[in-house]
Amino acid sequence: MTSHQPPLWRRAVAELLGTGLLVSIVVGSGIAAQQLSPNDVGLQLLQNSTATVLGLTVLILILGPVSGAHFNPVVSLVDWVLGRRSGTGLTLPDLGTYLVAQTVGAIGGSVVANAMFEVGTSISVTDRATTGHLLGEVVATAGLVLLIFALAATNRGVLAAPAVGAYIGAAYWFTSSTSFANPAVTVGRIFSDTFAGIAPASVPGFVAAQLIGAAVGLGLLVVLFPSAARSADDVVLAHSSVTTTS
C-alpha cells in the first residue's frame, strides 16, 4: 500500500456523487420548504439555506479526502489556473473530467430530489437573470473562491468544511441571487420547476457572472496570498494523502 493521490476515476466518482448530493439537498429542501411553509417565502429560504449549510459541510468532510470536494467547476478551474504557476493542482485532463462529473452529478441530483418528493422532473420557469441577481453571483462566487484558496494557502484547510458551509449559508441571505455560485449546480437546478429552480434563459447570465466572480476572487487571492499557487493540491481539502491500493 502506498500513499498518493487517488486515481482520476475515483476522484471523478467522488465529484459526481458530491455534486449530485449537493443539488439533491438544495432542491429537495426547497421542495420540502414549499410544502411545509407554502405562504412564507422567508421561512422557505431559512429552511432551504439551513439544510444546504449542514449538507455541504458533511459532504466536504466525507468526500474531501478523495477528490478535494470541489463540487464546483469554478473551484476546479481556479485550481487548474493556479497550479499552472507551480506544477500543482489539477491537470487539464483532470479538469475536464471534474467538469463533466460535476455537471452530470448536478443534473442527476435534481432528478433524484424530484423523485423523492414525487414531483415530476420538468424545466424550471423561474426567471432570475436581473442585474441585481447577476451582481449577486459575482459577489458570491468571488467570496467563495477567495475563502477556499485562502484557507489552503494558509494551511487552514481543516476549517474548509464548516467555513464553506457557513459562507454559502450567509450568502443565501446577503446576496440577491441566493448564492448559486456554481455553474454545475446552476445547470442542475434547471431540471426542477420548484422553489430552487432556475429557467434555462437565466443560466447563461448566471454562469457568466460566476466566471467573472471567479476571476475577481482569483485576482484578490493573488494580491493577498501570493503563495497560493503552491497549495493547489490542498483545495478544498487535501486529497494527496489518501492511502490506496490502486
Results as ranks from 00 to 15, higher is better:
M1Y: 08
M1V: 12
P6Y: 04
L8F: 06
A12T: 11
V13R: 01
A14P: 09
A14K: 07
G18H: 07
G18L: 11
G20M: 03
L22V: 09
V23K: 03
S24N: 08
V26C: 05
V26W: 02
V27N: 01
G30F: 00
A32I: 10
A32C: 08
A33E: 05
Q34E: 15
Q35S: 12
S37L: 14
V41K: 10
G42Y: 03
L43C: 05
Q44K: 01
Q44T: 05
Q47E: 15
N48I: 03
N48V: 04
V53G: 04
L54E: 00
L56P: 02
V58L: 15
L59R: 01
I60F: 13
L61A: 15
I62M: 14
G64S: 06
G64M: 07
G64D: 07
V66W: 07
F71L: 14
N72A: 15
V74R: 01
L77T: 15
L77A: 13
W80D: 04
V81H: 09
V81N: 08
L82G: 14
G83N: 07
G83V: 06
R84L: 12
G87K: 13
T88I: 02
T91L: 12
L92P: 07
P93S: 10
L95A: 08
T97W: 03
L99M: 15
T103W: 03
T103G: 07
G109Q: 06
G109S: 09
G109M: 06
G109A: 11
S110C: 09
V112R: 03
V112M: 13
V112S: 05
N114P: 14
N114C: 14
A115R: 13
F117Y: 14
E118Y: 13
E118N: 13
G120M: 13
G120F: 09
T121Y: 09
S122I: 06
S124D: 08
T126R: 11
D127T: 14
R128M: 12
A129G: 15
G132D: 13
H133S: 15
H133F: 13
H133V: 10
L134M: 15
L134K: 04
L135C: 06
A140Y: 01
T141W: 03
T141L: 06
G143P: 02
L144W: 02
V145C: 06
L147Q: 01
L147W: 01
L147S: 01
T154N: 14
R156P: 01
G157A: 13
V158C: 00
A160K: 02
P162T: 05
A166D: 05
Y167H: 08
G169H: 04
A170M: 14
A170K: 03
Y172H: 14
W173V: 10
F174K: 02
S177I: 01
T178F: 03
F180R: 00
N182W: 00
G188T: 01
R189G: 09
D193Y: 05
I198R: 00
A201K: 09
A201N: 14
S202Y: 06
V203A: 11
P204A: 12
G205E: 06
V207R: 00
A209I: 02
Q210G: 06
L211S: 05
L211K: 02
L211T: 07
G217A: 10
G217L: 08
G217I: 06
G217Y: 08
G219F: 12
G219R: 10
V223K: 13
F225C: 05
P226E: 15
S227D: 15
S227P: 00
S227W: 08
S227Y: 04
A228W: 07
A238K: 12
H239F: 04
S241F: 10
T245E: 12
S246L: 13
